[in-house]
Design a protein around this nucleic acid. Structure first.
Length: 268
DNA sequence: AGGTCGACCTGGCAGC
DNA sequence: TGCTGCCAGGTCGACC
């Protein structure tokens, strides 16, 4: 479900509402979403205080007073919502000493929660590429990375060892705004084009965060509200509709068994 | 070694 | 109404 802008929105919301809250009770309704034993998970959280919540890639990283870390990967349909009513997709209910309540909802149960002492215990964090807003991720890095692989550009944008946080929606939007076909092989993309793509990655993600993410289906922020960026999506989910730039029809193709939406006239 | 594909799950929707 | 098939924002591991 959520990509970088959505997870960032959730993290910003929860940072405000959960800072310094102490767990009083944890109810696991469905242990499938836990990596590790349910009893241990509950014991480790008992009496812990939330000190800091950050995002890394698409993961929510919750630092506890014990120096342990609760990591939540929302995957496709996970939600972390503060002070809402539970529903049939509520998999974990966290209650705090002051009476506040945090729900982990997950329709498809792909998401995973785990507690670790160090993030490098989790493979995901070890192979994850740079954050898009970090210094290491810059135009030169993108140009060099493109040169060394012969994959379609859309497939590389989704590869989190290249850059953290981009998913299917934003990969499509970034390529449309860059005027680059999703089928182009990265090694055939010029330095100038790579620079355009780099800047669109930054711009699209920043704009999406500003609008609190995109709610195509299930996404909700930390307060249970939908995001607003989907009104600005130019290609994603618009198969058969007019291109906003040239009025040709938006097409959908499959790339590595994911849908790619693009305008064949605007994107070369 | 690098890249692709199915599996993991549930449910909404279109078409018949 | 009810059935079938398709589709879905992510990630991992098996495989080529």
């Amino acid at each position: 479900m959520p990509e970088l802008p959505e997870v960032q929105t959730i993290v910003s919301d929860l940072s405000k509402s959960l800072f310094n809250k102490t767990f009083s009770d944890v109810i696991v309704h469905d242990a499938l979403v836990l990596l590790g034993p349910k009893r241990k998970f509950i014991q480790q959280l008992a009496g812990q205080t939330i000190k800091k919540i950050i995002r890394r890639g698409k993961a929510v990283v919750i630092h506890l007073g014990s120096r342990e870390i609760l990591v939540v990967q929302l995957m496709m349909t996970g939600q972390l919502i503060f002070n809402a009513d539970s529903n049939r997709h509520t998999r974990v209910t966290f209650t705090f000493l002051d009476g506040g309540k945090l729900l982990y909802n997950d329709q498809r149960r792909f998401g995973r929660l785990q507690i670790v002492k160090n993030l490098n215990e989790i493979k995901y964090f070890n192979i994850l590429g740079p954050e898009p807003f970090s210094k290491e991720f810059n135009s030169l890095y993108v140009q060099k990375y493109f040169k060394k692989s012969a994959r379609p550009i859309k497939s590389l944008l989704l590869d989190h060892t290249f850059v953290a946080g981009i998913g299917n929606i934003y990969a499509c939007e970034i390529l449309f705004r860059s005027g680059i076909s999703p089928k182009r092989l990265t090694c055939q993309i010029s330095a100038q084009e790579a620079d355009v793509i780099y800047h669109q990655i930054i711009d699209v993600l920043e704009e999406a965060i500003k609008h609190r993410g995109s709610s195509v289906r299930n996404y909700r922020d930390g307060t249970g509200q939908k995001g607003n960026f989907n009104q600005r999506l130019a290609v994603y989910g618009r198969e058969g509709l007019d291109c906003l730039k040239c009025h040709a029809l938006i097409e959908r193709i499959a790339q590595s068994s994911r849908s790619t939406f693009y305008c064949a006239r605007c994107q070369k």
